[in-house]
């Protein structure tokens, strides 16, 4: 396929469907914050009760992910960063987009192996996934890896959304690109906070208690 189309497809798949899946995953995880262990279990059961779930997974997640990851690695390897000579924010984001992309690829590969592949092999059930993640993130080293990775994924997605809008000719002038930059970085904060919060809740021994308590405190503070 010609470079123009393969790059366009790469950019599109990053938002549709992968971006949507990240948001969906974020909401599923956050159900652990809101509803504790049971809430998370219910969300996992609900998502797996969708019709044709395997087809959705193959065409909505696995194939786009494989393409985006492989082609993205190719893009990352072609870069010759010059952030020492050109120190400004957009150039830093150019570098971070490539670094976080590579982190995301390794992390997601490993994460799928631990969860989805183990379910497919019959080593773990959907209901046990919450406990499995609890066991993983309870170990400080793995917790740090998860924390860095979810921040990297959140950045890669939200900054990628910004460059998607440039690459598809949606945001053209400097003002439009600045405004979309604020919006995307705002989205980064939201996505990063929600993923991180869920991680802390998964880590808690009694994950319903700590999570809901924090949420209730926040709700009281807000209003």
């Amino acid at each position: 396929m010609k470079g123009f189309y393969s790059r366009k497809l790469h950019s599109l798949l990053g938002v549709i469907p992968l971006g949507f899946f990240i948001l969906e995953h974020m909401i599923t995880n956050f159900s652990a914050v809101e509803g504790g262990e049971q809430g998370f279990k219910d969300s996992v059961v609900w998502i797996n009760s969708l019709p044709l779930v395997l087809i959705l997974e193959i065409f909505g997640i696995w194939l786009p992910l494989l393409y985006h990851g492989v082609y993205g690695t190719y893009i990352a390897l072609q870069a010759k960063p010059n952030n020492g000579r050109f120190r400004h924010e957009r150039n830093l984001r150019y570098l971070l987009q490539r670094v976080t992309g590579v982190i995301a690829l390794f992390f997601i590969g490993w994460h799928i192996w631990e969860t989805r592949v183990q379910v497919a092999l019959g080593n773990v059930t959907h209901e046990e996934l919450g406990g499995l993640i609890h066991d993983i993130v309870s170990q400080p080293v793995f917790f740090m890896i998860y924390l860095i990775s979810v921040l990297a994924v959140s950045f890669h997605f939200t900054n990628g959304l910004w460059s998607f809008m440039v690459s598809w000719g949606i945001t053209i002038g400097p003002r439009a690109q600045r405004v979309s930059s604020y919006i995307c970085m705002g989205l980064f904060v939201i996505v990063a906070v929600m993923f991180t919060w869920s991680l802390f809740v998964f880590r808690g021994m009694e994950f319903e208690a700590s999570g809901t308590a924090m949420l209730h405190t926040l709700k009281t503070v807000i209003g």
Binding site: K2, G3, F4, S6, R7, F86, R90, N91, Y94, S167
Partner: peptide, 19 residues
């Protein structure tokens, strides 16, 4: 611009406009 090595090569570092 849609040929190989065309516009798809841009990576949005935006150094060009500053330089």
């Amino acid at each position: 611009l849609m040929e190989d090595g065309g516009i798809e090569g841009c990576g949005n570092s935006q150094n060009c406009v500053r330089a």
